[in-house]
Design a protein around this nucleic acid. Sequence first.
DNA 1: GTAAAATTTGAACGAATGGTCAGTAAAAAA
DNA 2: TTTTTTACTGACCATTCGTTCAAATTTTAC
Lengths: 186, 186
Amino acid sequence: MSKKSSETKQKILEAAKIAFSKKGYDGVSIDEIAQIANVRKSLIYYYFPSKEVLFEEVWVNSIDELENELFGSEEETENYYVKIKNFLRRYIDFLTSKKAISELIRREKTNVLDQDSWKNAKKRYENFLGKIEQMIIEGKKKKCVNDNVEPEVATEMIASVDSVPRKSLLKRVEQMLLKVLLKDNV
Amino acid sequence: MSKKSSETKQKILEAAKIAFSKKGYDGVSIDEIAQIANVRKSLIYYYFPSKEVLFEEVWVNSIDELENELFGSEEETENYYVKIKNFLRRYIDFLTSKKAISELIRREKTNVLDQDSWKNAKKRYENFLGKIEQMIIEGKKKKCVNDNVEPEVATEMIASVDSVPRKSLLKRVEQMLLKVLLKDNV
DNA sequence: GTAAAATTTGAACGAATGGTCAGTAAAAAA
DNA sequence: TTTTTTACTGACCATTCGTTCAAATTTTAC
């Protein structure tokens, strides 16, 4: 794939991301995306076989970006207090800075998990949730996370934070989550 | 309007409520709603001039039902500690029992507030939020709500609770909100 | 410079969508 | 019973939608 080609593809992906995040999958037409990206509609079909696949690629990229910011920096510490605290801080930073992706996830995550047609998107999102769950499980093994915390429930709790408006409230929720999750030796 | 007429209209509204809550406004067609309600498509247009108006009526009814459950029972007390505590308890009860309406609001509230076309729906929802805000303002006057709480922000916080999954987590969030909002003389 | 490959375009298609309307059936009024 | 009003139907329309494709243009390889 040449430079120009991947540039165009990127332009389409970016336009689709913005459109889907603002209006949702069903609220956006290929024409609309083409207009935003400033390309002809048929060109979109040169790069993507269908609207569904385009959405899935946008989704997977978005989760990649989120996951990278949350788990990417190779953590030196094995201290799960620090690990989980850092994780939540990074998550909240992401939610307040990367608005388009956050809004996209908030809007479509239910559909991604329910809908059978978006298999790749679903698999990618479940994999991401699985990493959070794994972190909680490890935290329990290391005696940092409360024994009464069910990892699956804790994961749902953490993921639901993406619907919280305003940074001030997010900070409160962060504190609440830390209190609920971690054993309280300071 | 005869009995049969209002029964049919109700059947359509109910079908639309379920469909919209599951798939969102853009994800649902009039044909689909007609199928669920077991009526012909054109009959829907006998009762509603457009899909938009149908949605707005579903929305307004839903907010009515919610508001009625939260503010309806004529409270005897003027104690705003009790009032706000009861309010939050009722809200959480509603979210866990009336799933369709809760999901509808969660799905579409952003669109209702943004979109200019759904004027009635927007006005109704803003009026509902206004009542919550008013309760906070009164609570401040009565020295029950913390001085540093901004009513508008508090309202957003409370409204965002509709995105919280699981009753166990909802109970936690309820406690957090009470802690943030109310002065802590037990 | 020319051939081959990759990229972009515009026109078109069938299906689905929101919406209309003339007409039929049923209920209420007379 | 007849008339008038109300409730319902089916056929149809215009538009938008996702999608296809042959042809044009641009880029790359030789």
